[in-house]
Design a binder for these strands. Structure first.
Lengths: 190, 190
DNA sequence: GGTAACTCGTACACTGGTGTTCGACAAGAG
DNA sequence: CTCTTGTCGAACACCAGTGTACGAGTTACC
């Protein structure tokens, strides 16, 4: 986009809308554009002036969320013992999962099918790489496909987010629970 | 409800609506009442004659689904080695989870909060009982709360349903994958 | 066969969202 | 200072769903 030609206040509003949308969508995946505009301190018309449709706004927010998530995850040390690396990765990523839970739902029913998965490609690849390494070193099981293990990790983390929201576990317990569960699940049988 | 006073054709329509709704909601959690009525071969007005609102219809369908599920699960032999009992339980329940996936979503955003969980109490208790027994026999881990283990089981099964729908695993692979994963995850550490 | 129960289609009122149009106004860029 | 760019609120058209009202027609039950 020709951001350079944009006037300063326009640019300011765009980022205001983006951050407001991120916050609103993370609370309620079905927020109306009106509420997002209001939260951004901007008229609804202005919002539509920058984002042609609700879907494109959600997409932009989602892309941004993935980007900042990637930044965090990129700093995690994935070298050394794969089990310890996985522990570190869980500690960082489960928080993101918890945070962007509702946003993911919003993306899933506002964006065309496949789009969500495409944007998840990078973070997914990171997990896959670590799991593959662990498998080749005999630390993680190889009797199940890597994609399945990734799915299990994903779902257990989401489950933890649900449990927290329901008040059945605390935020502090989540990471250790997830770690204990996944390390056991990924250990080779016998 | 005074089913006895109902005329025969009315009773027929009610069950037709119920089964049609079950099928439609299992495909798309957001189907309109019009489509359900159409699928049941009934006018929309007739539907509203029997179910005062969409929510009550969804509730009725959900109650029915739970009931038939309970019937299936009730026949599973949960005695003997807890690990083998769990394997049998997974074989029966994961299919139900897969089948009623969309219906659950429909229930979650049409029914008052807590209602879904209330109706799940029985199937949940069955799982808990088995896990508790396994724990007391030293076969399942006790370093994590039972409720967490139930949650993990739930989420892994739902994940499998997602993977199937995405075409990444086949229907046949699901049960063995889930079993292998959960048995490992539930095994006491060390 | 009469009657009460039920069904049907059409039509309507209502709700809550999306996206657009208009014209007046404000603010940044050069 | 001027002109372009952007903003604003109000209004509008539109869509899709829910739930209701009516009146004519049909079906089961006794």
């Amino acid at each position: 986009m020709a951001v350079t030609t944009r006037r300063a206040d326009a640019q300011r509003n765009i980022t205001a809308i983006l951050t407001a949308a991120a916050e609103c969508l993370s609370r309620d995946p079905a927020v109306s554009t009106s509420e997002i505009a209001k939260a951004a301190g901007v008229g609804r018309v202005t919002l539509y002036g920058h984002f042609p449709s609700r879907a494109e706004l959600v997409d932009a927010v989602f892309v941004q969320a993935i980007a900042t998530g990637e930044e965090t995850l990129g700093q995690v040390d994935l070298t050394g013992d794969p089990r310890e690396a996985l522990t570190r990765l869980i500690a960082s990523s489960w928080h993101l999962v918890d945070q962007y839970r509702a946003l993911l739902i919003a993306a899933q029913d506002a964006l065309p099918p496949g789009r969500v998965r495409d944007l998840h490609a990078d973070p997914m690849a990171r997990v896959e790489r670590l799991l593959e390494r662990g498998r080749s070193e005999g630390v993680f099981r190889t009797d199940l496909p890597t994609s399945w293990l990734v799915s299990v990790m994903h779902n257990v983390m989401h489950g933890a987010a649900t449990e927290i929201q329901a008040g059945r576990i605390t935020s502090d317990e989540a990471a250790p629970y997830i770690t204990a569960t996944l390390l056991a699940a990924f250990t080779p049988p016998e």
